[in-house]
Design a protein around this nucleic acid. Structure first.
Lengths: 140, 140
DNA sequence: AGTATATATCAACTATACTTAATATGTATA
DNA sequence: TATACATATTAAGTATAGTTGATATATACT
């Protein structure tokens, strides 16, 4: 029962539903999701952790990126993803998709293969400005 | 999206999952649920309200009782109820079912038709003691 | 080695959810 | 109409979840 309630809890937050809906079209890395939903990186990492702990997403490292994807390993979860796909309207996701495509378009060499899969039906736009940590100074 | 997240939120609490699972076999009134899950009446009313606000249950008054039942009006909700029915194991519900049957058995005249439907596969037990409000003095 | 990028984690804070005890409201019944 | 029963609501407290800003860690590149 605890596992089940934690799955529902993971899906009970609108930010996390947006993330699930974004992942509908395939793998994304954290920076894509941050750009798409336009929230702080720590906030997105927090929500991804909850989705991961509930078994709803899987991650894998690829170079310096962490790629997240839906965990379609069991029928119940697939059912939930389908329901979310159907019930979260595309109009609600228009902004997210636009920002996502803009982000991908802004670095064509790095995320070459992703644009087509993720953003098919959205038009181009300029890159929003993100403020990332400028540098990390390592202590000895 | 808000409606969807509120449905998941309503199902994200173990007490509410127990209630949904109890309602699997048909209508129950609040006092049954209170007896079955063995929690305070106000606490159960609180959780029922959340299930109701999310559109997962419907209620109707019958004399002094409020009867609650699952709202099976759309496919998605049915799907959720089926998943819950399947994934919440009967062992986890044994105590609830026992207390429910005991409660119904303790007042055979009032809840005549319900016992068979609700508690088929559970054995008898004595009545637990409930402390209800003794009386209400009305102010003028 | 030093610097940059990408992501995770942590501590402090704010917001939301849940619980409890008390009391109010609605209905039946003497 | 006074009393009892069934349920809802409320206020106050406690617990959990979500946010923010800072910093840590991991990888890549020079």
């Amino acid at each position: 029962m605890k596992e089940l309630s934690s799955i529902f809890k993971a899906l009970s937050d609108e930010t996390r539903l947006r993330i699930v809906k974004l992942l509908e079209n395939g793998e994304l890395c954290v920076c894509h999701i941050v750009a798409a939903v336009d929230m702080s990186q720590s906030r997105i990492s927090f929500h991804l952790k909850i989705l991961k702990d509930a078994g709803l997403v899987k991650d894998r490292r690829e170079g310096r990126w962490m790629r997240y994807r839906l965990n379609e390993s069991d029928l119940f979860k697939r059912l939930l993803f389908l329901s979310i796909a159907e019930r979260v309207k595309n109009e609600e996701m228009a902004g997210d998709r636009e920002r996502l495509e803009a982000f991908i378009a802004s670095r064509p060499q790095e995320f070459a293969g992703l644009a087509a899969a993720c953003c098919s039906r959205v038009r181009r736009k300029t890159v929003p400005g993100f403020m990332f940590q400028v540098s990390t100074v390592r202590l000895k």
